[in-house]
Design a protein around this nucleic acid. Sequence first.
DNA 1: TGTACATCAGTGAACGCGCGTTCACTGATGTAC
DNA 2: TGTACATCAGTGAACGCGCGTTCACTGATGTAC
Lengths: 216, 216
Amino acid sequence: MSWTRQGGGHERRSYHHGNLREALLEAALQLIAANGPAGFTIAEAARLAGVSPAAPYRHFSDAGALIAEVALRGFERFADALERAWNDGRPDPVRAFEALGRAYLSFARQEPAYYAAMFEARIAAEAYPGLQAAGDRAFGVLRDASERLIGDLPRETRPPALMMALHIWSMSHGIASLFVRADPSRRKLPMSPEDLLEAGVLLYLQSLGLAGAKKP
Amino acid sequence: MSWTRQGGGHERRSYHHGNLREALLEAALQLIAANGPAGFTIAEAARLAGVSPAAPYRHFSDAGALIAEVALRGFERFADALERAWNDGRPDPVRAFEALGRAYLSFARQEPAYYAAMFEARIAAEAYPGLQAAGDRAFGVLRDASERLIGDLPRETRPPALMMALHIWSMSHGIASLFVRADPSRRKLPMSPEDLLEAGVLLYLQSLGLAGAKKP
DNA sequence: TGTACATCAGTGAACGCGCGTTCACTGATGTAC
DNA sequence: TGTACATCAGTGAACGCGCGTTCACTGATGTAC
């Protein structure tokens, strides 16, 4: 990729945009944030990027491919954020696990467009190489953290790490879709989504003998 | 509402459809099931109902109103299904609670169009009177069941019923959206969604001292 | 029981709109020499 | 360092399409008498 001018500034464009691919992905994020994945069109993205409606086809075969690319990048950022939060189990696994949960919701809140592209766009993951893998990497963070958390448990009371990761993921995703998304249909909560998730995770860990009996 | 012919059969139509409102809602379900809430248009629904594109406007002001009506009915059916499953806590609260969870996923699986209209359509609930209330009624089943389940717990270890209901709802919804929906982006699971949810709920209840230590 | 009439559900033609997609083109960029 | 040329990103005009929405209308239904 090469461009002549740096940054996304709106100085007078020359014939070649120079950074159109990135500009289109950026535009897609704006449009998805505003109206959901269905509210995105190539024509509108081109308009936002200040380019003719035919130009995007030099970079993406169709709208699906563009959204898939957004989702792919979303999963990568998501995995990064989760990894940073888990911080390899520091300062201690339980605390790091809670940080992981907060990071999950924080991502859904800060990056609603990425989150929507990842989970609401109805993309056929197998049609876009790399997408599945990126999703797996994000989930892998949760799975590894779970594995680490339950590593010291006696064999009889140790649940499968995969199952545990799925439980935590499901609850996190459920809270994110029901209560975090700035959606007109969002319901009101008597507590913050973060507190709700933390309490749920703590109770879950408690049942495994992994967290103190109380920590409200 | 009045109609001259019963049923949705496709016998020769007369000038008046007679049951268009219902036919449109039915068509909407088909379209939403096929392509999600965004894949629904008034024109296409009219076509499916065998009626001119202007006819739907006699019954719905716009597409949003039609989808909102679908969501409303969905919440009503959903609440009914959950209530039947809970069965007032019989044969015993824990078992009934598990049945409630299965009913949740079963609804998401059997009625994906309703489920999508209810949770993915981005409807402004407050704009459609009754919608919020219908949603509240469905959630209320879960809340009442939670209340009943924890009723006998000692005050110190008893969580707020509302919070507990939110946890269960979130996990159920998370599992439903991630693993039940017949969506091209759905991920594979090493177990059935029902088993995953049941295990999660049991662990959760266990942490409250409400379920046996093991029941795989 | 029959007739006149009001009601209103559905018609069909029309409109403007935005989208997806194509095409031959153009002009900027980079490279070979 | 300068020139010729290949490459290719972006143009702009055009197309067909389906949608939303309106309108004056029509004909079936139900009701008052």
